[in-house]
Design a protein around this nucleic acid. Structure first.
Length: 505
RNA sequence: GCCCCGUUCGUCUAGCGGCCUAGGAUGUCUCCCUUUCACGGAGAAGACCAGGGGUUCGAAUCCCCUACGGGGUACCA
């Protein structure tokens, strides 16, 4: 049987890092086993629908390099892949369940049910459920006469269709990550399958679609673990073979405990979404990993290892390598904290490996975004990339950590106070004279270095009475790339003018 | 409340009965390289494996209990 996996988000907002990871594990498994990857949009909740979310999801997956075989845009053998367009299918299967007595019609309104629950809670029973213990006391096709049901439905009274969960039974299933899980049906409620608006609930639609789309492996977040037995029951009711299940551990917030949320991201200044997202209602903007300066391959590599550990000690690896090594049994069981420091390390590592030209568009974009001068040749920016590659953690560091490569330096007051003195000033004037004698042909790292050292030796100048001052003149700050390389990059006239500017201070 | 899942260095984790006086990575610190920063190199500190009972010649590894954490408990996914 050929392998089919699916990623099935609902378009209720931007996809966050946990969702991306789920999608990615599905993708890895599909690639590993030569299967297909489906993107199915689960938009059965009209109320929570957010405009733009669907597009966002697709954009985010694309940015992460997750390729979709079948989906809303791609089409496929079991289209449509948007649940809101599959209404008749769900109707049909619900009727089947109804006629086989495996589901029933219920008239209790949401209001009545919440009332029921609050009453139960007051009398010391907080976990009231609509299940086989209580359904006999409710208003449904199990307690009403056939005629009464008919009369109510025909008069247009709203109703839902619920699953008739078998009494007193144990549901067993094997989770590929956690092993055997057992739940008693007394713990499972008679889930609503079809809402009063005629749309299916997640549970129903999900099972029907997974079956129809021949999904063989369901990999999803741990929040679905408690409803997995219900899903098994549904497969049973239809007489279908269930796929294999794997429930991924959750991604937890970096500090304290709990599921990582957008709020945590805001609080800690850490992105949780792949791309920038603007809330269509409030207009509130949230920064994504991409725009914050993270590389997609670094993010994906880091994220893949959040909960998965292949055999051996490799950490930095290509997607191809991950596909090669992936196995669901190697996914851990416990929740994982989102460790931004480790992501930074991955990002830095990936930046170092990229060729210089890779950074050109990013540098230009950052310059533009910062409102800085953008008038630089590619040749110049290639050298900047070369100089900054080992020093950048985020993509924007190519600009932000070296603004002096693009505009006149601002002198750091502490650095200035410490290093700017009479001796240094005189030495800088002397160096300026030495370098002024170089013509543009001779203005290169080698000559700059040689002429400077020649002069230093003949005049017995110690490094510490020249080098810091040179750096101060060129960059204004105490750290950064080699001063001579900077002078080379800046060129003669700019270098000399920076000397003069400092000397005039 | 009830149900389900989990618990090894700060963090991500290796470990699936003896190789563990618990390994790697990251982070932290020290030293080297270096005119600075970063990279790179070499080291150090850091978990008595949540706690308690078993099982066994032998347990981080198997079983039970407790604690703690998380998830679920909707006409949301």
């Amino acid at each position: 049987m050929s392998v089919v996996v699916r990623f099935a988000p609902s378009p209720t907002g931007p996809l966050h890092i946990g969702g991306i990871r789920t999608a990615f594990y599905n993708y890895l498994l599909a690639k590993k086993l030569g299967g297909k990857f489906i993107l199915r949009i689960e938009d059965t909740d009209q109320v929570r629908f957010v405009p733009g979310a669907e597009e966002y999801i697709m954009e985010a997956l694309r940015w992460c390099g997750i390729e979709i075989d079948y989906g809303v845009r791609e089409g496929g053998p079991d289209a449509p892949y948007r649940q809101s367009e599959r209404g008749v299918i769900y109707q049909q299967y619900t009727q089947q369940l109804l006629s086989e007595g495996k589901a029933y019609i219920a008239f209790d309104t949401p209001g009545e049910l919440t009332e029921m629950r609050t009453q139960a809670e007051k009398s010391g029973n907080p976990g009231w459920q609509y299940n086989y213990l209580t359904r006999k006391g409710m208003i449904n096709s199990l307690t009403l006469s056939e005629a009464a049901v008919k009369q109510r439905t025909e008069s247009g009274e709203p109703y839902v269709i619920r699953l008739k969960v078998p009494e007193d039974q144990e549901v067993h299933f094997k989770d590929e990550i956690r092993g055997e899980v057992v739940v008693h049906t007394s713990q499972i409620d008679d889930k609503v399958l079809m809402k009063s608006d005629g749309l299916p609930t997640y549970h129903l639609a999900n099972i029907i679609d997974d079956h129809l789309m021949k999904v063989t492996h369901v990999i999803r977040g741990e929040e679905w673990l408690p409803s997995a037995p219900l899903h098994l029951l549904l497969y049973q009711a239809f007489g279908w073979n269930p796929p294999s299940f794997a429930h991924l551990p959750l991604i937890l917030r970096p500090d304290g405990n709990g599921k990582l949320s957008k709020r945590d991201g805001d609080r800690l200044g850490v992105p949780v979404f792949p791309l920038d997202w603007t809330d269509p209602d409030t207009g509130e903007k949230t920064n994504g990993f991409k725009e914050s300066g993270y590389l997609p391959d670094a993010l994906v590599n880091f994220m893949a290892l959040l909960g998965w550990h292949p055999e051996g000690n490799e950490e930095v690896m290509s997607v191809e390598r991950m596909i090669e090594l992936f196995s669901i049994e190697k996914v851990g069981k416990s929740g994982t904290k989102f460790d931004i420091d480790k992501l930074h390390w991955f990002n830095q590592t990936y930046i170092k490996q990229k060729p210089n030209e890779y950074f050109l568009p990013y540098i230009k974009e950052t310059l533009l975004k910062q409102g800085m001068n953008t008038d630089f040749t590619d040749e110049y920016l290639m050298k900047v990339a070369h100089l900054m590659k080992e020093r950048a953690v985020l993509m924007k560091d190519f600009v932000l950590k070296a603004t002096y490569l693009y505009q006149a330096p601002e002198y750091d007051s502490a650095f200035m106070a410490k290093q700017w003195n009479e001796t240094g000033k005189n030495n800088l004037i002397a160096l300026s004279n030495v370098w002024s004698r170089l013509n543009s042909e001779e203005w290169n790292t080698q000559r700059l270095h040689d002429t400077m050292h020649e002069w230093m030796t003949t005049n017995s100048i110690a490094n510490k009475f020249l080098m810091p001052q040179l750096r101060l003149a060129l960059t204004g700050v105490s750290g950064g790339p080699d001063s001579i390389e900077i002078a080379d990059l800046l060129g003669k006239s700019e270098t000399i003018s920076r000397f003069e500017r400092l000397i005039a201070q």
